[in-house]
Design a protein around this nucleic acid. Sequence first.
DNA 1: AGTCGATATGTTATCTACTTCATATCGGTG
DNA 2: CACCGATATGAAGTAGATAACATATCGACT
Lengths: 123, 123
Amino acid sequence: MKPPRSSKNDVFLRYKLWLSAVSGEGIIGEGKYKLLRMIEKLGSLKAAAESLGVSYRKAWGDIKESEELLGYDLTEKTRGGVGGGNSVLTSKAKNLLEAYDALHKKMDNAIEDAYDDFKKKIS
Amino acid sequence: MKPPRSSKNDVFLRYKLWLSAVSGEGIIGEGKYKLLRMIEKLGSLKAAAESLGVSYRKAWGDIKESEELLGYDLTEKTRGGVGGGNSVLTSKAKNLLEAYDALHKKMDNAIEDAYDDFKKKIS
DNA sequence: AGTCGATATGTTATCTACTTCATATCGGTG
DNA sequence: CACCGATATGAAGTAGATAACATATCGACT
């Protein structure tokens, strides 16, 4: 018989990766990454927050916190006008997202390499 | 003047790595790793929990949860007797810790490699 | 047989992060 | 120039995680 593809005791590796300030606060991780990408896509913080199922209050606070920690803006905000306002990514934000992508890719490769070895050891 | 070694806007990368069940619960990560290593060192769950500044209740629950998820014991428990009882690691637990160590080392290397590249990109 | 200290486990309180609510501000467009 | 909808921000309510508290159980040693 062939082995089951997964069992009750199946396990796998997970990891979180983030950029942090010396003070410990997270500047960008999975959550803020997704939020920024969604702002890029939708052109609005409100729409981005809603589409991710996170409160506007938190999304707004997250962006603000990151910007304060980094010392530069990640989004260019507009109030009033057509549609009430909007948010678009700054070029620095886009740059940061690119760098985060590359980093994540490298770590994904590393963990994939280490995974088989790990499973062999614990089985 | 020479540049400061660190500034207000200094940032660095951090990551967490853990073994997870399909259901999502963590089987072993930094916390349980430290707890198990401390049990190994001190020979008691109570002493280990206290030395790590975590409540006995939580430490006990953590170990139990991991054991249930893995389907095997990580500690051999004794009640009564000299000293009131004790906990020692099973060989499977030691094995798991070894594998976790190796994995972490690999990831540490990977992140170190990626770090300079990342910083160059975002600065 | 009684003592002692660790394991074992339910119950209640506290902490903290996030959501909800409330309210103000801005400015292009009709 | 009033209106609308997004940004901006304080304040209060909620839920999930952890700590604190309370008790029971076990068994070698005296």
